[in-house]
Amino acid sequence: MTNVLVCIKRVPDVAGEVLLSEDGQSVDARHVGFTVSPHEECAVELATRVTSASGGTATVLSVGPADSAEQLRNAMAVGCSDAVLVEADTVQFGPADIAEAIADVVRTRAAAGTSYDLVLLGNDAADTGDFQVPVRLAYALDRPVLTGISTVELAGDRVVARGDGPDGTEIFELPLPAVIAVMEGGVSPRYPSIPGRMKAKRAPLETVTPDFEPKGSGRVRLTAPTPRVSTVEILGSGPSAAPAVVDLLLELGVVSK
C-alpha cells in the first residue's frame, strides 16, 4: 500500500497581460482567477491513478495563503482523499524554504504513522519557474529524484517512470521512497464530478504553519517586460493575401525558387 503526497501551488491564472503589485514583489491577481499549473494537474491525476492501483491514499499539499484551500478542494474533487495546507506568506519563501516546509510535513506525518513513499510535484511552478523545489525536497528527505516525468507506475517496491529525453522516451526504475516532478503530456487530468465536488467539501484539510525562518528567494523586484508597441505589418485579408505572403517567404529566404 503506497501513499502518495502530491504538491500543488495556487498561481494567478494569467492568460494575457500581467499586472504587478505596487511594491513589485508579486503579481497583482485581483482581476484574474487562480489555478494550478498544467504540470500539477497531471501530477494530481497520476497520484490518483497510483493510489487507486496500490490501495493507498493520495494526500494533496500546498504551501501558500489560506485561499489555497480552493485549489486543494479542487484536487480532492478529482480523487485526493485529504489535504494539508502549509499556510505561509510565500512571497517571503524561496525554493529551499518551500522544500523545507514540504519535508517537515512528510517527516511529521511519518512520525504519526503515515508514510508517503512517493512525493509528486509539478516540474516547475507556473509563476516563479524556479525548477528546483523537487530536487531540494529530495535531498532534504534523502531520497532519489526525477524531473520531467510524464507517467509513473508502481512495480512492487519500485516505481517505473517515463519522460521525454533528447533521444526519445527515457525510462527510469527507482526504489521507493522517491520524489518525482511531473510534466504535462503523459496523462489527461480528469474533470471533477458533482459527487466528487460534494465529497471534497467535507474532506479533511489540515492547516499547519511552518516553524522556521525562511531564507527567502533573493527577489529584488518584479518588472513587466518593456511593452512592445505593435509594429505589425498587415499583408492583407483573406486568400488574396497569398501572393504577398509568398513574396515575404522568398524575401526571408525560408523558401527558394
Binding site: 498587415i234 499583408l235 483573406g238 493575401a241 497569398a242 505572403v245 523558401v255
Partner: peptide, 28 residues
C-alpha cells in the same frame, strides 16, 4: 497579431490553401 511582425487577417482555412497553391505555382 499585434505582437507579430507580419499578419494576414482572415480564416486560416481559406488563406492557408491559397498560400499553398501560390507556393506550388511559384516554386513549380
Amino acid at each position: 497579431v499585434t505582437r507579430a511582425h507580419y499578419a494576414v487577417i482572415g480564416d486560416l482555412h481559406e488563406i492557408v490553401p491559397a498560400i499553398n497553391a501560390e507556393l506550388r505555382a511559384r516554386l513549380g
